[in-house]
Design a protein around this nucleic acid. Structure first.
Lengths: 349, 349
DNA sequence: TTGAAAGCGCTAACAA
DNA sequence: TTGTTAGCGCTTTCAA
């Protein structure tokens, strides 16, 4: 072994020997527990520094049953996960919050239902203390696996299934999709628009459904020809826009269920020589800054604080981990979170 | 405990009891090792199924010293990491390859040098078997930490420092940035362009330097006014383009060091009423499909197989983990990998 | 306040 | 081929 790299890492035992104390004492100092006299503690700390001691996590986990790690499970083709800035921001928030609480983020990407087995085994293997699941479509098999594995879980976005009467509350974090959609449509109405179209997201996702519901709350009698389904990509937004223009050439406003789709719609409008917002007002959803501020014209949209939602997911999960997890004692604030949205007016509407 | 969730997970011991064999035998069956007679093995497997036994990873790690997990460390503000599709694709490739080999991906995001300590502790804590590091700027502190922690490492992109004479080879995966840049410039020359400008990436990154070097290989006497530095964002590309047009209004081609910057440049050109490619030919680098195919006009670019590079990083690391890691025996193919690039002609040049 | 000792669940010699 | 046994490095009673 010429490589110093492979010098065995020091153990508690060695630190104890060096400091002339017992393993137990070192453990106490390292874990910051009370009741070690200052000078002794000092000696231990010195030994730790000199040896460059770092606790072995596996050994610790074996006895504490805590990993200090949380899985982020994405039940979506990876393509989609990475293509969509929405996830990125959310993961960023999660990462930050976990870091603050000294937890690690284990990323579990699934390319389809075939990978669920693997995820299930992983969760059951006790690698992680909890899971944050993005299960976009109406499929609860992943959360169900987590439950069976005894892993606390928080879902990103309102799940499409309803809790069985018996089961515990499913924790999730979502924004007020429906309310936000209402605000969007009202804004367009306030601008005097009367032929308002909607580019919906894929209608097997609750976010899409809720936004469509919000749209209909305000415009209950909308001509069905004024609603087209996209897929949260720019291409999908463009296609939907073309469809809408074909069906209703007289439309004077569009509410797209995401900024990304709105950007696709804007391209189509420009290509057709339609002016935004003079001829057609356009409003998006999300306020993905890198998209909304860079479209031409910049996009009016409904803002949700995506990164903050990520933080909330992590925080909620961490809190669930702390909680007694018995029946009676179930304590404060272990409930789904729905965050408010906010209209951001730029140039497109 | 009303929640079935918290039923203690079965241990090897319990499986052994149920199958009427010893723990060792169960372990052998579970780990697929030879030399267990078929009927016995069958009985064990049955017990495993009935009990829903899943091995406890912490216990296993404690004795095998293997985690089956690899860290992906990103030494870049998270903003950048997520904003840039380049990373996304690379992580995707990594994730796929790790999955195939039953390894997990632990994502370690750092918001700045302040987080390095945390990463260092994590690596030293034996959580992971190896690390894939994206250390974009000319800073080797993260790889150095990994080395000290005894964690095998592969760098994403050619590192900016050179190996100390003594040290082991630093493993990395990169594409042939310099050669790709030469191809780009030659393509523009072949189109008859003579005033060719370059929008470089941040010049503290080797990828930027190498691409600039490639540009200069072909055009050694370029007017310095024809080179501007960007930052790999669309905004940076736009700014650089404006600067170039101010300094050299007669330029007839631009080679941008990334598709994302090229997209910013295209915006500026369009705004100025310059036609692409008639007035100014534009070529990018990367072939980020979601960008290059969606610009107006679609972008001619230099393709690198980013996802494949991610896979290669993972594969190289896994191979390094297998290898004896002593001195003499250092075996096959444990060397940096440089992948070829390829010109992709679309409409912009 | 400190130390001794018993495991956590598993793998891997070594014996049988 | 199977079982017995000794740890892996740590935390945590329990005694001193």
């Amino acid at each position: 072994m010429s490589d110093p790299t492979f010098a065995a890492r020091p153990t508690l035992e060695e630190v104890a020997a060096r400091a002339g104390v017992s393993r137990a004492t070192v453990s106490r100092v390292v874990n910051g527990s009370e009741g070690v006299r200052a000078p002794l503690a000092e000696r231990v700390r010195a030994a730790v520094d000199e040896l460059g001691y770092v606790p072995n996590q596996a050994a610790r986990t074996l006895v504490t049953r805590r990993n200090g790690a949380v899985a982020v499970v994405v039940a979506e083709p990876e393509t989609r996960f990475f293509a969509d800035p929405f996830f990125a921001q959310q993961v960023r928030g999660i990462s930050k919050e976990l870091t603050v609480h000294d937890n690690q983020l284990v990323l579990l990407l699934t390319e389809g239902a075939a990978d669920y087995q693997r995820v299930g085994r992983y969760l059951a293997g006790g690698h992680v203390d909890g899971a944050l699941i993005f299960s976009l479509h109406d499929d609860n098999s992943l959360p169900e696996m987590a439950r069976r594995a005894g892993v606390a879980t928080v879902i990103g976005g309102r799940p499409g299934w309803s809790d069985a009467a018996s089961g515990p509350t499913t924790l999730y974090v979502d924004c007020d999709n429906r309310g936000g959609a209402r605000d969007a449509v009202r804004h367009l109405l306030g601008l005097g628009r009367r032929r308002i179209a909607h580019i919906a997201g894929p209608l097997d996702q609750t976010a899409s459904i809720d936004r469509l519901d919000g749209f209909r709350d305000v415009l209950p009698n909308t001509d069905p020809a004024l609603v087209a389904e996209g897929d949260f990509t720019p291409e999908g937004g463009a296609l939907a826009m073309e469809e809408l223009l074909k069906r209703s050439p007289d439309l004077d406003a569009v509410f797209a269920a995401s900024d990304v789709m709105a950007s696709g719609a804007l391209r189509v409008l420009r290509r057709r020589g339609l002016r935004v917002p003079e001829d057609v007002a356009v409003i998006g959803f999300d306020d993905i800054v890198s998209v909304a501020e860079w479209t031409d014209p910049p996009l009016t949209t409904i803002r949700q604080d995506i990164e903050e939602m990520g933080r909330m997911m992590a925080r909620l999960l961490l809190r669930a981990l702390e909680s007694p997890s018995g029946d009676g004692a179930a304590p404060v604030a272990l409930a789904p979170i729905v965050t408010p949205t906010q209209l951001v007016v730029r140039a497109s509407a």
